[in-house]
């Protein structure tokens, strides 16, 4: 480990903005994709559930 202090680590030798924006953006994009996919999956399940309920009521009326 070649960092003498936490402050020195965050300062990144004066390149803090460039380094932390790069890694931060990576984290943000990954989180956005994972959460977006979770929402998409839940929506797909909800749509299927709703379609199933509508089928059931249709059948009930037909009888």
């Amino acid at each position: 480990m070649h960092w003498n202090s936490l402050g020195e680590f965050f300062a990144m030798g004066g390149y803090a903005f460039y380094v932390w924006t790069s890694f931060g953006l990576t984290a943000v994009l990954v989180a956005w994709e994972v959460l977006g996919l979770r929402a998409r999956r839940n929506q797909a399940w909800r749509d299927l559930q709703q379609a199933r309920l509508m089928d059931q009521t249709d059948l009930g009326e037909a009888r």
């Binding site: 990144m12 030798g13 004066g14 390149y15 460039y18 380094v19 790069s22």
Partner: peptide
Amino acid sequence: QQGEAYRI
């Protein structure tokens, strides 16, 4: 040569 910026 590049200091810490190369970590990108």
